[in-house]
Design a protein around this nucleic acid. Structure first.
Lengths: 348, 348
DNA sequence: CTGTTAGCGCATTCAA
DNA sequence: TTGAATGCGCTAACAG
């Protein structure tokens, strides 16, 4: 059961250099893709790397490196609980980042304005080794991302993807699957009798919201045809607006059986449910585990919360960046962000 | 938003030594709790560590260390799918372990025999820096664990805990909560009409099974009183036995509404459900995501799978050990093993 | 009980 | 375009 295929004594860059008949410095140059080495030499070194199964020792590399890698997190400005969690997790990982020779900074950006976001992105060119961005999927933003990656900056999209861009990686959940998951929960919790289901979301122009909505409808249509899905209501992720929308919903559809909240601002929905005395007989499924949604889950106002772990997302983004810079290995299934389902019973 | 409280330039052991007026070697001795230093000197060094906010650089420490830390994984012998997943994950992490100066070995033990397990544990004394064990909670085992930790070996229980022992850490889920989670799923999926629910488990003498059973009953009794929970059936985690038990269940209770499978051997239950044509109208909730349970979920035979991520458990155990040995930081919420709920829609 | 010293494997000047 | 030399922060062997 032991790892017998990996040699007990690891090849060093020095070994590679010897086998390739070059100096340590040259070997290092080709390893780190630095210019100023003849093509033939590059080939020789790479061949030696292959033959020896060389992989750099991350510890040695970090110790020797003087310069810190600079990374920027571009997060939406404004008070969104989930974004707050992301910031907290960034803060919680500064020590670890120091150990990894990473220096990070959080920049608040008005994400809803594509122009501003693009400007903020472009301002990072040359300033950072990586930028992690919770982006709006818009042509202007896409092109800014592309320009950044051209310039050699690692770009990682966070939570909401910009799939058509050249970003190196997306860290976040599959939002269509998340929508489907919500639908199954709602469908099974409501039961077999015909009923109405409402959807409240921030805006259909947000990629993640649109995808969740799509997934939700898919499953509803195919697997729960006895349930009627009402037209989606856009509350701009605002609790106050959501509260109003929810109340209107109740008057228009006294027989409403369930609500799926796609975005933020769940507090408003909870309030409406509670004040109207319908908290326990309306199925309410929403996203993101926060102190508020946790309470709602425990007191029965919410029935399930679908979550993406902010801590995992931050660490994953960082690990992926590290892997891009060096030749460090990435454990694929460790970097897959899961769609967590929380009931009152399995809260962390 | 930047980390302004942590100094840009990190204190080194050398700095600590200077401030404490000792040599590097002595500083290192007290840092690593090695003997042969006067109490007064120890105090001076520790004071300097505190004042400077010193934390060792893990990269430097790993680079300098020649000896590998030796860890043993003691896993149940015999073909259990989940245990297989654990082994796979160990294998998948050998590269990473090498980077961390860890050398691991997997030992198959007959876990159901306390004497054998204890013997295997004791055999590790002096041989390993840490042992990760999927243990049976039994006095003989507990005392073996205690003896190991006395000897300075880090012991980490995996998947099933031995709480009364002096093991440094438990890596696994809260099984009572997992049982509660299962109950809520079953309760909500079955609906409001009175019905019967069956429980199949490996053995009530296994701590994790007993805890899940307990949690399940708790929630059933308090929140779903209209559901009748039948006496638990013990199938020894064996698929064949479970199939027989399930068939007997159907003849004895033609109106059975749900089955909660606490342990392994779900294949037998699925087979019984399918051959009797009840796969889609019996709620079936079980544990551990394997290729088989994944299929059952997708074809509707299973309704939910409660999982603990084998990969996370292995990496967590390793990280915790690393933290015990050195002063490396542990990110608490990263080490909490979550109770994952999988429906057909959020499969990874 | 304490100090001196020599690397660990790589990044990074500075020369050639 | 390439090489030699230095040092990152720590561990560990060796001296006293």
């Amino acid at each position: 059961m032991e790892a017998k295929n990996t040699p007990k004594v690891r090849a060093t860059l020095e070994d590679v250099a010897q086998h390739a008949q070059v100096s340590l410095a040259t070997a290092d140059r080709v390893l780190n893709k630095r210019p100023g080495v003849r093509a033939a030499t590059v080939a020789r070194v790479n061949e030696a790397v292959r033959r020896l199964g060389y992989r750099p020792d991350p510890s040695a590399a970090k110790l020797a490196r003087s310069r810190l890698r600079r990374v920027a997190f571009l997060l939406p400005a404004g008070a969104n609980r989930f974004v707050g969690l992301l910031s907290e997790q960034i803060a919680a990982n500064v020590e670890w980042m120091r150990d990894q020779r990473i220096d990070s900074e959080v920049l608040a950006v008005n994400v809803f304005n594509p122009g501003e976001l693009a400007k903020a992105l472009l301002a990072q060119e040359g300033q950072r080794d990586a930028v992690m961005v919770m982006a709006l999927d818009h042509p202007v933003v896409r092109s800014a991302i592309d320009q950044l990656t051209q310039a050699g900056t690692v770009v990682i999209t966070l939570v909401s993807d910009v799939p058509s861009s050249t970003r190196q990686h997306y860290v976040g959940i599959d939002n269509t699957a998340a929508g489907r998951t919500a639908a199954t929960l709602v469908g099974r919790f409501v039961g077999r009798q015909p009923a109405k289901v409402a959807i409240i979301l921030g805006s259909l122009s947000l990629r993640d919201h649109a995808e969740r909505y799509f997934g939700f409808n898919q499953v509803m249509a195919h697997e729960h045809p006895h349930l009627t899905v009402l037209p989606p209501l856009e509350g701009q992720d605002d609790a106050t607006r959501n509260e109003v929308l929810t109340k209107e919903l109740f008057t228009a559809h006294p027989d409403l059986a369930a609500i799926y909240s796609v975005g933020a601002g769940n507090g408003g929905i909870s309030t409406a449910l509670r004040t109207s005395g319908r908290a326990h007989n309306t199925v309410f499924v929403g996203h993101e585990l926060t102190p508020a949604s946790r309470t709602d889950l425990l007191d029965g106002t919410m029935d399930a919360v679908i979550n993406q772990d902010a801590g995992h997302e931050i660490r994953s983004a960082l690990r992926v960046a590290l892997a891009q810079w060096s030749q460090e290995p990435v454990i694929a299934d460790q970097e897959r962000i899961r769609i967590d389902i929380y009931l009152k019973d399995n809260l962390p």
